[in-house]
């Protein structure tokens, strides 16, 4: 991976996480369990897409090679995407979808709160928009965790299974490498130990209320930041990039 432009890499990571999660959530459009939830999921997807657009547009500007948000979303190959593996995991049942969003939202909110103080003005401005919506997202996904966990035996068991399945993908959210170290040193990225502490506290509080067990830290998946993805990623891109690939330069 080229290390020549860590701000580009860092902004791209933030954008890729949101783009892929947005795409996953958009797959629920028309399939939500009830009308309100169908609307809620597509709204959530749209919020993430808006954040991704801001971040990818800025990443393109930082890179300085004339790439637009569309170039970055539609004209990169799988190995060039730097999202964490958590966001590319399949929707599964509703407990899986909500657990995935809960684990992400609990990380995303403190990250955006910390980025408000970033020395990079544009990232701080983008965080200023995101933080308000991220608060809504975390509240909604937390409520669902409680409703499932403290609901029926069936919903409890499914929520616990979802957490147990997804837990292996949470380590990557806080992983450090050269890009992050440089950005933290420059005062652009926050101290991820503090973000992790906030995440951990939210997870503990919500799972306690939900009567769910926090899974033990075991093997943690890694590699997404370097472009190594799970087998699901190729299918996401095939669908997301299909029109652009089939009709290059098409406009409508």
């Amino acid at each position: 991976m080229a290390m020549s432009n860590p701000l580009f890499q860092y902004t791209l990571r933030l954008g890729d996480d949101l783009l892929i999660l947005s795409h996953r959530l958009s797959e629920w459009c028309g399939h939500g369990p009830i009308l309100e939830e169908d609307i809620a999921l597509t709204n959530r997807s749209l919020d993430h897409l808006g954040e991704a657009r801001n971040l990818l547009t800025y990443a393109g500007q930082v890179e300085g090679k004339g790439r637009t948000e569309d170039d970055l979303a539609y004209r990169r190959m799988e190995r060039q995407f730097t999202n964490v593996k958590l966001v590319e995991q399949p929707n599964g049942d509703y407990a899986h979808t909500m657990a995935r969003s809960f684990l992400f939202d609990a990380y995303h909110l403190p990250l955006m709160q910390a980025l408000l103080k970033s020395k990079d003005e544009q990232l701080a401005a983008i965080a200023g928009k995101s933080v308000k919506e991220a608060t809504y997202h975390l509240r909604a996904s937390s409520e669902w965790m409680v409703r499932f966990g403290d609901g029926t035996a069936e919903s409890h068991q499914r929520a616990q299974a979802a957490l147990d399945d997804l837990w292996t993908f949470t380590g990557e959210l806080f992983e450090s490498d050269d890009v992050l170290a440089q950005m933290t040193q420059a005062g652009i990225a926050p101290d991820m130990a503090a973000v992790k502490a906030a995440w951990s506290k939210t997870v503990d509080e919500v799972l306690a209320e939900a009567t769910l067990k926090r899974p033990a830290d075991g093997f943690m998946a890694t590699g997404g930041r370097k472009g190594m993805h799970t087998e699901h990623m190729g299918y996401i891109l095939a669908e997301m990039q299909h029109v652009t690939r089939a009709y290059p330069g098409a406009e409508w």
Partner: peptide
């Protein structure tokens, strides 16, 4: 629902 018919609205 905290999410409504458009991004700016709750139901």
């Amino acid at each position: 629902s905290p999410f409504g018919s458009t991004a700016c609205k709750a139901l």
